[in-house]
Computed example of a mutant assay.
Amino acid sequence: MLPELQPLPDGPLPQPGDWIRLEAGAVPGAPADARYLVAQWHQDNPALYELHHPEDHPDHLDWAAVVTIDVITLVTRQTYDHGTRSWAPPRN
Rank of each mutant, 00 (worst) to 15 (best):
P28K: 13
G25A: 11
R85L: 04
A47N: 14
L22G: 09
W41N: 08
Q40S: 15
A32G: 04
T84H: 01
Q15S: 13
Q40K: 15
Y36A: 02
S86A: 12
D44R: 14
P14I: 02
W41L: 08
Y36M: 04
P58N: 02
L61W: 07
A24C: 05
A24Y: 04
A30M: 08
G83E: 01
A34F: 12
Q43H: 13
A34N: 05
A47H: 14
P28F: 12
T68R: 13
V71N: 06
A39Y: 13
H57T: 03
H42D: 13
G17T: 05
Q43I: 08
P28G: 05
A47I: 01
G83S: 00
W19I: 14
G83Y: 01
D70E: 14
I20T: 08
T68L: 00
G11E: 08
P9S: 13
T76G: 03
G29R: 01
H60N: 10
G11V: 07
D18Y: 07
R35M: 12
Q6M: 12
A32W: 07
H60A: 10
G29L: 03
G25T: 04
H52V: 03
V38W: 06
R35N: 11
T76V: 08
T73A: 00
Y80E: 11
P14C: 03
H53T: 00
A34D: 12
H52P: 00
A26Y: 10
D81V: 05
Y49W: 06
L8Q: 14
Q78L: 10
A88P: 04
Y80N: 08
I20P: 06
G29P: 05
R77P: 03
D70G: 07
I69W: 02
A47C: 09
L61N: 12
D18S: 07
P28Y: 09
L74T: 13
P16M: 09
V75K: 06
L74C: 10
G17H: 06
A30W: 00
W87L: 02
L74N: 08
L48P: 04
A39Q: 14
D18L: 07
G25W: 11
L22I: 11
W19L: 15
D81A: 10
E55I: 07
L51I: 01
Q43V: 11
A26K: 08
T68K: 09
G25C: 05
V71S: 09
Q40L: 13
H57C: 02
A88T: 14
V67H: 05
P9L: 09
A39V: 15
Q78C: 05
P9F: 04
P46C: 02
L51C: 07
H42R: 14
D81I: 02
Y80Q: 11
Y49P: 00
D56C: 03
T76Q: 12
V66R: 03
D59G: 03
I69L: 15
